[in-house]
Design a protein around this nucleic acid. Structure first.
Lengths: 204, 204, 204, 204
DNA sequence: GCATAACCGAGACGGTACGTCCAGTCTTTCC
DNA sequence: GGAAAGACTGGACGTACCGTCTCGGTTATGC
């Protein structure tokens, strides 16, 4: 480890800042996180933060990228509905229960008032998440379970959009029944919702 | 109009504040709106604002409620897919192009860091919007086009969730093809998406 | 007492700031006094200081004006040399030993790098001091001890200039002999300096 | 010029620093000169400055010593009043008009808040200046124009003190009449100041 | 003639204070 | 008793320098 030399920035400081930012968001919530607080927690000078990041959201984007890679695992059972259902369960859990998910929600929230952040989000964070969301559909298409000209993006949005919508907007719980419905077998049209209200799958 | 009286609050001040807040959000964006700015623009004392509202988001909730009633109109053609398609087009236009939609996005964004605001949003704003989202499904159910035990909420979420998701998260445009797909009935699984990529419907 | 209302500033805050500034200069020296330190010591918000003063020297000018009026007393014995000698002794003591004198020296020092402060000093502080320096000469002139066309300002400068010079520049002690010499009887030309090095009069 | 060696400091760096400091004081004034600014202007690393000097005033003392030797010339006419008058004119011009004089005033100003600087000033700068101030009196004494036991230091202070006082404190111009008065011998007590207000000598 | 030690430039670092902005509270006077 | 006015405490903002540090490069001995 080196601190302050001509070969550029201190890796120790960088990591301390990212970890402090993550912890503070988890502890006090995004709105109460300040750059001064991050600096104090990280044992770093404010100027060091301003030298490398432009805002607290900029820090959190980096922190998210550093953390979030291992949150979601793959599922490959050979059946679209089954794979998708597993993936949606993990997505719901990620969004509602993980620290990274809390950071993601905060960033999406802040992006509503900050076009620059929105751009970074779409350039650096969403592609990775979206690639995972697409994978079950891509495998199904490769298998022949979906036609070659199927609009996978539309299908992905119809599967994950309602989950984000409930998390970000309505706050409705993501019940197991809801996730089943979204992952739905052919012809499922939620006609029989006897299982609605059953044990939650993604979140309390 | 009265200013300074012993008989309850000044309606003039209330309206001036709501209008100033709306205009400022439109002009400089939510993030740069301050209570001091609203007070100055409205020609009102800061204390008057603090007497009646608790935060700038509180003002915007009131402003939204005052404005947004007439944004969405009814459609009743006797066919769920047709009604729903019309409704989704209006919803997309509302979210992406109207001033009220901008306020709505800002409030949803801010609600990610403010549980109190999230609660107000869900208590005072969402029920009205959701009722309109449900109406096409309710009429279809009444007509017998949908079974009596269909889970309308899940269906609503699957129709409108992806729209909010694109608006709030991905920023992807809401093409006509996408809206057709979301409004589609039985067998709609996007297998044949020959119309995908056609002219946008909701927004460029 | 009122604090914060439409009729202007808080007298309590003003006094707390002036006193804190004075005390801090006495305790830690001008160079280590900061506006933040004054604010903390006075129990006042930084903004309150910046609302009414433009710099720490601006505060000290006010503090000096508030304090320094009663530092020097009058002497009227009917003889110029006697009156002047008494006055010079008090001036030396003021400059070298009093808290106000310390503030004065700091302000003069800072005025060397700050033309605005120099102007305030000359407009608001020096006239009062100079009026007192002139008084012995004016009385002598009224008495006929000095001719009507005597250049009193030049005489004042020749009497007090060396005192300021020793205080500000050379740091040489103001001995009793030196003060006698400066107050000198006619024809005194320091030829006989038998008393030089005798007990100090103004300062150690 | 060498850069990097094992035997002592770089003379090139030393000179670049002194010149940069001088120029910056002349251009932006003492108060706005920073060590970082000097380093940048001199093309020198901050560390190099800190290796050889302890503060910006320390640099300026060196710069002053390097520059100021040739500012004042000798006068020897065989008459104290004449020699002294010439010297006082040059002193006034030095203090008010030369770049070195500006540095001197800044150092004296700063010395009011910095005892260490005051000590250096009195040890390294003042003795040279004072020696010159004393020379006319010493020659007069050698000639017998002044008694052997005359207190030359007191006489020097009475001659030059008022000049420093006007320059540092009051800002009053050093008129020709004033300098005549200060240089004047026996009986000079400004009784007849018919020439007061005549053309300035030292500075406008 | 090649290692090595001292100085150099560059520039990141932990800090402190700056001067500004806004939040939210309070006091006064007017209506 | 609500309203306008605006001063107040408090705290974070983003900036500027301070003085320290580590690095890699550049010489002039001295082995």
């Amino acid at each position: 480890m080196h601190r302050g030399n001509r070969h550029g920035r201190s890796e120790a400081a960088r990591e301390a800042v990212l970890e402090a930012a993550d912890n503070l968001v988890a502890e006090v919530g995004f709105a109460r996180v300040t750059i001064e607080g991050i600096a104090a927690r990280a044992g770093v000078a404010k100027q060091t933060i301003y030298r490398w990041w432009r805002s607290k959201t900029d820090i959190l984007v980096d922190a998210f990228v550093a953390d979030a890679d291992q949150e979601l695992t793959e599922h490959d059972t050979g059946d679209l509905a089954t794979d998708l259902r597993a993936h949606l369960g993990e997505l719901a859990r990620f969004l509602t229960e993980s620290d990274s998910g809390a950071v993601f929600r905060a960033l999406v929230g802040e992006a509503q008032h900050d076009p620059g952040l929105a751009a970074r989000l779409r350039a650096e964070i969403l592609p990775g998440l979206r690639a995972r969301d697409r994978r079950p559909f891509e495998r199904a298409q490769a298998r022949g379970e979906l036609p070659d000209d199927a609009d996978l993006d539309a299908m992905v949005d119809r599967a994950v959009g309602p989950i984000h919508y409930r998390v970000l907007v309505t706050g409705e719980p993501l019940t197991s029944a809801m996730l089943d419905f979204l992952a739905g077998q052919r012809g499922q049209r939620a006609e029989a919702s006897g299982s609605a209200g059953s044990a939650p799958d993604g979140v309390s």
